[in-house]
Design a protein around this nucleic acid. Sequence first.
DNA 1: TACACTGGTAAGTAACCAATTACTTACCGG
DNA 2: CCGGTAAGTAATTGGTTACTTACCAGTGTA
Lengths: 211, 211
Amino acid sequence: MLIETTSTAPRLSGDARRAEIIDVVLRLSAERSPGLITTAEIARSLGLSQGALFKHFPSKETIWLAVADRVATTLLATIEQAAEQATAPLAALRAIFLAHVGFVIEHPGTPRFIFHELQRAVDSPVKLRLRGMLANYRQLLLRLLEAAAQRGELDESINQQAAASLFIGSIQGLVMQSMMVGKQFAMREQAVAVLAILERGIARQTTGNAA
Amino acid sequence: MLIETTSTAPRLSGDARRAEIIDVVLRLSAERSPGLITTAEIARSLGLSQGALFKHFPSKETIWLAVADRVATTLLATIEQAAEQATAPLAALRAIFLAHVGFVIEHPGTPRFIFHELQRAVDSPVKLRLRGMLANYRQLLLRLLEAAAQRGELDESINQQAAASLFIGSIQGLVMQSMMVGKQFAMREQAVAVLAILERGIARQTTGNAA
DNA sequence: TACACTGGTAAGTAACCAATTACTTACCGG
DNA sequence: CCGGTAAGTAATTGGTTACTTACCAGTGTA
């Protein structure tokens, strides 16, 4: 059940090893709380000695920063790509939601890492990086909401800031629930049902029937 | 800016001291991540020696369990009281939402403690206690949603499980955002705007105008 | 008045952690 | 094929953590 000691053949290039280290931190984050992950554990998962890590990163903090960077880049790329493929703003929002949910299903360590680091009081570089990522995310949502509003697809009474909060928050809520219930939580199915309520909440009421 | 070393006069009764310890853990949780709170820090905040804590709790784990117990009890009491004062189911849901938001504004350490403990992989007694609390919370929401549905106040297409998820998740999202932005986040105002969208999402569409 | 109990202190201890050190080995260009 | 560099090891360091132990002072009661 635990992550295997993947006794990797030693002697990798620096770039490859750094990528491996980032990978394994995210893999471990899916099981343990990121705050409990030690450098010894990372090294053991890679079949390395603990000291070897510091050939590639000057400190644990910089490892965490690299992980945050990876998380921010890949998550943003995922949702931006989803948004681009859609034609209408509301369809883009739906595509982002589903892409985001798919992303966290595929990379369960990612949201746990984000949650854990955002929870820290101090404004560490790691927290700032993640905060910046979420600010970008939010801006993209607000652009789409504004576009939908101008097309008359949005209800006039909607507070767009609140809608963006609710959008991101609802995904966080799904993740939180899967952390509670565990592996057997049907996140994808719950996600589409949640999305349906969300869309009803912001979209202009259709006078006709929805069928 | 840090929590004062409240140099409490020593020699309190066991019950009083235990309550103080629980209080201070929650107070510290509002600033630091609960995972970083040490027994030495708790003792210092109370003006006690570190060893004195273990006169009242056999281990740190049992302190955490007592905190979880306090959190579960007070939060559930808050939302149940809010629900009782309302007459109609949808009004009760609204009252719960606002009461919950008020609770986390008043006790900022509470949601941070909950988040942090739920994130742990192992099914510790602490996690089980909090999970049980959230299960109760969810059941209350589902009862109200079902009652609203039978009164015809709910849209027929609504997945009630998803609605409950979205309800709790949206509060978690607000908390998460306040952890990012910091003290100056207007949570209460955002909360009512979010709630408006939520209600639009689940309530039966009024055929008349809303004004 | 003796004495057990209770809440407290101060000084430990073993375990663990990130980071450093001294040294070794694989790889690669001239 | 040789010399430098990058990637690795094993052992150790200083610091921190939860918890323990030995001792102490006040209080109430038999």
